[in-house]
Design a protein around this nucleic acid. Structure first.
Length: 497
RNA sequence: GGACGGGUAGCUCAGGCGGAAGAGCACCGGACUUUUAAUCCGGGGGCCGCGGGUUCAAGUCCCGCCCCGUCUACCA
């Protein structure tokens, strides 16, 4: 026997073992295997039998199980293996007398990582471990590569992201994060559907990127020979549906923004946007609170939870503070009584907020909020009534045209929602777009485009409407106590290598 | 984009003072019929991220580049 150990040699050695299975007529990549149950079910059934009929339990419970070999302890004429399926782990016992000498000999061709199917009796070993005492077994899939280390698991963060399957194999608790994420999304869908909202799908390829201030990804359609943009938000299409007569719609899917990557931003991320006719932002704030309270307490299982060392309480009612009042409270400055950029800049700089030349009045207010207010918003807090300059799709506040009826929700210092009474005055909307066009011409690449199709729709008439957007990934971060958005995205974007 | 930290065996990590590349797990061979991070004996395995430079000698020092992380900047 030659000796092995470089990766190449390990693979070659495993291929040899795989071929030996094939030579014996035991196809190493099986087509199907009928399990009598999952491992978790088999364990539960056995434990119940132990309680109800201990004598029968000692005889064992027949089972046919399958899983990936994750540990192996050889002992001459007996061998123990641990196999794992999605539900649980179980120990297998192979004895030479029980499976036959020839068959026992084939165990040397099994490696960690292989999938095996086995049938026999489930009962306890002398040491009390629930174990499948194997009578017959077969290879289901031969693995050609060694698994990450059994004790420390896989910790290299780059490999965990690039080869998430290895992360899941080595760190099965990671599965729970993604199960919770899915559960959370299902709860949101259930909540909205049960209240009469219709889930719809609008285009991801947009001729004009709109609905948010962000740089888009550009792509090209060959047949029409035209550039298209991956959507930065579904907002404008959803509002067109309200124009068309739908009264409660939502969309929960991916958006794309061609911007920086950090612990709170991934270029593709998931957003839930909902629109409700005949509603305004105050009513929608009530609904947001009720929906997120319902969803989060279900997923987390409690009103109180910890996020990255912060203690957060979801206890209602959630705090609601006008944006300018929050700035007065936390930043100790007043920006409400000025609309002048230079004056606002002076005031902001007086408390150490850095103001860049390209920031207008609205951006200055936003910057003060982000740096001086947001970090304090640990328990769920709504900030509302934002300056019109940074809210081009929101309706002006009914008694103050300098503000918009807009709110954002913050939890654990993360912005999770953005919502407003939707601007449905087509003339005002055109002016707002024109303001954005000016900004764009002045070099602001994130400024919005004028969208004539959307204006046409508003001219047809959109009823009073309130709309909400939720950052699903950030909500998942909160529900799973994840410090990085990449921990709640199965395959986060990394640089190509 | 900037600062800091990291990249050494398939995995987890030592070595960082320039002087023959290490450990555990995994792997290969052997012993063992109740182990469970099994144990015991023996063995193999390295482009030390990549490319230059300094030096008699570089994993280690210097320069450049690539990738990852955190913070920051930009940005919802």
């Amino acid at each position: 026997m030659e000796e092995h150990s470089t990766l190449q040699e390990i693979i070659e050695n495993r291929i040899k073992k795989m071929l030996r299975f094939r030579d014996r007529g035991d196809e190493p990549y099986k087509y199907i295997f009928h399990r009598s149950s999952t491992i978790a079910e088999a364990r539960t059934q056995f434990e119940e039998l132990e309680k109800s009929n201990p004598e029968n339990a000692q005889l064992g419970l027949s089972a046919q199980l399958a899983g990936r070999i994750v540990a192996r302890r050889e002992q001459g004429k007996s061998t123990f293996m641990d196999i794992r399926d999605e539900s649980a782990k179980i120990q297998l016992f192979f004895g030479e007398n029980q499976v036959g000498a020839d068959k026992y000999e084939t165990l040397k061709d099994y490696d960690l990582g292989d999938f095996v199917g086995a049938s026999g009796k489930v009962r306890r070993t002398k040491r009390g471990e629930i174990t499948l005492f194997v009578e017959t077994f077969q290879i289901l899939t031969k693995s050609l590569r060694s698994l990450p280390e059994k004790y420390h698991g896989l910790t290299d963060i780059e490999t965990r992201y690039r080869q998430r399957y290895l992360d899941l194999v080595a760190n099965p608790e990671v599965m729970d994060i993604f199960r919770k994420r899915t559960q959370m999304i299902e709860e949101i869908r259930n909540y909205l559907k049960s209240r009469g909202f219709l889930e719809v799908e609008t285009p991801m390829l947009h001729p004009i990127p709109g609905g948010a201030t962000a740089r888009p990804f550009i792509t090209h359609h060959n047949a029409y020979d035209t550039d298209l943009y991956l959507r930065i938000a579904p907002e404008l299409y959803l509002k067109k549906l309200i124009v068309g007569g739908f009264e409660k719609v939502f969309e929960l899917n991916r958006c794309f923004r061609n911007e920086g990557v950090d612990t709170k931003h991934n270029p593709e991320f998931t957003i839930m946007e909902m629109y409700e006719a005949y509603q305004d932002y105050i009513g929608l704030m009530d609904e947001t609170e009720d929906m997120l309270y319902t969803v989060m307490t279900k997923v987390i299982g409690s009103e109180e939870f910890e996020y990255q060392g912060l203690k957060i309480s979801l206890k209602r009612p959630w705090e609601r503070i006008p944006l300018y009042e929050a700035i007065r409270n936390y930043a100790k400055i007043d920006l409400e009584n000025t609309r002048d950029r230079e004056e606002a800049k002076k005031i902001a700089e007086s408390i150490g907020v850095e103001i860049k030349p390209e920031m207008g009045y609205g951006k200055i207010v936003d910057e003060v909020m982000s740096t001086k207010v947001k970090p304090h918003l640990i328990n769920p807090t709504f900030l509302y009534d934002y300056p019109v300059e940074i809210s081009p799709l929101a309706k002006r506040k009914r008694d103050n045209p300098a503000l918009t009826e807009r709110y954002q929700l913050f939890i654990g210092g993360l912005e999770v929602c953005n919502a407003f009474s939707e601007l449905n005055d087509p003339l005002d909307q055109r002016e707002r777009f024109l303001e954005q066009v000016k900004l764009r011409e002045a070099g602001d690449e994130e400024a919005q485009y004028l969208d004539e199709d959307f204006l046409t729709a508003l001219e047809v008439g959109m009823p009073p409407t309130a709309g909400l957007g939720i950052g699903i990934d950030r909500l998942a971060m909160l529900c799973t106590n994840s410090g990085s958005i990449r921990d709640v995205i199965l395959f986060p974007l990394l640089r190509k290598i």
